[in-house]
Computed example of a mutant assay.
Amino acid sequence: MKTFASRHSGLLILALVLAVLPLALPNSYYYDVAIRIALNAMVVIGLNLLMGYTGQISLGHAGFFGMGAYASAVLTTHYNWPPVAALAAGAAATGLLALVLARPVLKLKGHTLAMATLGLGIIISIVINNEGQWTGGPDGIAVPGFAVFGFEITGEKSWYAVAAALLLLVTWFALNLIDSPVGRALQAIHGSEVASRVAGIDTTRFKVRVFVLSAVVASIAGSISAHYIGFITPNMAGFFHSIELVTMVVVGGMASVFGSILGAALLTVLPQLLSAFEGWEVVVFGAILMLTMIFLPRGLVPSLARRRGKPAAGSGAAPLKLVKKAGGGHA
């Protein structure tokens, strides 16, 4: 039996880094970047459970992120809902939409699945743009602060503590999920959906569950982001944001929880660093991504771990032997 420390050494290291990091953040700008990294990493971990571990691509996750953000904005601004209730309502609505659409959408595979999820994201973005009386349309909408039981979260240190705690919670949940029979079933589906069915795994049920889970995580991160930023626009639900999230998964490492965090950190910080290349930052950004995919095709964390001759912490392949472990099949 693995001990807690051996199974979650990466989580303990992450907790230590998050606890010590404020000592190295000199001003509010760096706190802002750290908070955005943590919120992006939450979404990317959920998306990696769907893409990296289950093998189901989604190009519309920014739509779920936007649904959470706009649910919080509309319900708190127009109806004076408490922020926590608005966040919960947004997560529930997003989860319900994902549940309704998951079965027909996840019957598709490959590029057809990618196009279907892309279409879903575009529809959500169009609705947000067109319903200007509620959402502010292309001009965006202001979002009040986040308060819990009358206590409002203010200041970069408080927001950093909230974002860091949520990131730790999502990371812990993902690691435990991966190490459970459900996680082994997801990896078996990625390895071979046909073999998984033969072993008795209800592949449709598992794919629907992870799709809904990843959508709800994205919605919660969207709600928190909306309250933190204080003003949102439809761009956060747009196609380019979805591509950015997928790129974070791929660059950090497919089927790697800590690769998700690294990918979110790199692609959140990199545009800031490339601002010096005035007019050429997009070209340099694209070149860096291209070189990463050429020389580290599995993503940064799995590729570097493989070169060191050991599996990355929080990572999982999808070997067919997992089918036998996950079979019998009703995890």
Rank of each mutant, 00 (worst) to 15 (best):
S72V: 11
V301M: 03
H190S: 09
T268V: 01
L118M: 13
S225F: 15
Y53C: 03
T76P: 02
R103S: 07
L87N: 04
G316E: 13
A62F: 12
Y79F: 06
F285K: 10
W81A: 00
A287N: 08
E244K: 14
M51F: 14
A188Q: 09
T171L: 02
A114H: 09
L99I: 09
W81Q: 00
K109R: 15
A326C: 11
I141K: 02
G259E: 05
I57S: 07
E131H: 10
I141V: 05
V74T: 01
L289W: 04
G222Y: 07
A215I: 05
F277P: 11
R209E: 11
M115T: 12
R308M: 14
A313S: 09
M1D: 14
I141W: 02
A165S: 06
G132F: 14
H78Q: 06
R205Y: 04
M1W: 15
L120V: 10
I243L: 15
L169E: 04
V283M: 13
R7C: 11
G222F: 08
P26L: 06
I220P: 01
V301E: 03
I232A: 04
A5D: 12
F211E: 03
I37P: 01
T54M: 09
I37Y: 03
A312W: 03
L296S: 07
R306I: 05
K107M: 08
V148I: 14
T204P: 05
K321W: 08
L18A: 08
I288V: 15
G200V: 06
A34D: 07
G286P: 06
D139W: 10
F295Y: 15
F231L: 09
T94R: 08
F146I: 02
G329S: 04
V143P: 01
S256D: 08
V17Y: 13
G183K: 06
A15D: 05
L266M: 03
G95M: 11
G52W: 12
R205E: 02
L274H: 07
E278F: 15
A15G: 14
A93D: 13
G95E: 08
M42S: 07
L262R: 03
F64M: 07
T204C: 04
L11R: 12
F258D: 02
K109N: 13
H330I: 14
A163S: 11
L291C: 11
H78E: 01
G314L: 04
G314M: 09
P138G: 03
V257S: 04
